[in-house]
């Protein structure tokens, strides 16, 4: 609200990919936010013009190009995509202020309808093959590499009874697979450069990038 307070004409852009799936920034949420903003400003005595549009994918320049025609009539853009989408829009339309409407938090999976939980931190050096398909980086509060800490009680993490102990899950899973010996493998200290320690990351597929 504060971000867009000074502007009268807003373009609200959603994305039909991940943020749709997680009910954060799809067509429906765009409509809701638009209406909510409209009402909020009206209540404060200000009427603003909000245009709505949802792109197929906001992190691809070709899709973002679709917005060209709409840019003239707006003072600012609010993106409901993940951070990638927000930045892509900002990159393409340099003269318009772009604001995020979604706090992008993590890469996760749906535990059930309406509940999402973190599963991957994109560390660039995947351990899932040896940890029974459960990631200690994303799911252990301490990101421990070789078994649980002393705070693991009844399979729960010491930070909250709501949080499963990742290492308990790993152990259960390995046992089920009959791969208990893997638990004894020592995982050496992790090289965090691939996780961003080496600066902004980039992947180039030479065959595709041409």
């Amino acid at each position: 609200m504060d971000y867009i307070q000074p502007f009268n004409r807003i373009l609200l852009v959603g994305c039909n990919e991940c943020v749709t799936v997680c009910s954060a920034g799809g067509r429906k949420e765009v409509g809701l936010l638009s209406s909510a903003l409209q009402s909020a400003f009206l209540s404060a005595g200000k009427s603003i013009d909000i245009k709505e549009h949802t792109l197929e994918r906001q992190c691809d320049p070709e899709y973002v190009e679709e917005l060209v025609g709409m840019m003239d009539g707006v003072d600012a853009v609010v993106s409901m995509a993940c951070g990638c989408g927000v930045q892509e829009v900002a990159r393409r339309y340099k003269n318009k202020p772009v604001f995020p409407a979604v706090n992008t938090k993590f890469m996760g999976a749906s535990e059930r309808q309406g509940v999402w939980a973190e599963r991957c931190q994109g560390c660039g050096n995947c351990l899932l093959g040896i940890t029974g398909g459960i990631c200690p980086i994303a799911r252990c509060s301490k990101q421990l590499m070789n078994g649980p800490c002393g705070g693991s009680t009844n399979g729960k993490c010491e930070i909250s009874k709501e949080v499963d102990c990742a290492w308990q899950l790993i152990w259960d899973r390995l046992k089920m697979l009959g791969q208990e010996e893997r638990y004894l493998d020592i995982i050496p200290a992790k090289d965090w450069r691939t996780a961003g320690g080496g600066g902004p990351r980039k992947i180039v597929r030479e065959d595709l990038a041409g």
């Binding site: 429906k28 409509g31 809701l32 209406s35 909510a36 409209q38 009402s39 009206l42």
Partner: peptide, 11 residues
């Protein structure tokens, strides 16, 4: 009843 119906009514 969609959330948008309710919000639009208020809007």
């Amino acid at each position: 009843v969609d959330a948008i119906h309710i919000l639009k009514a208020f809007e």
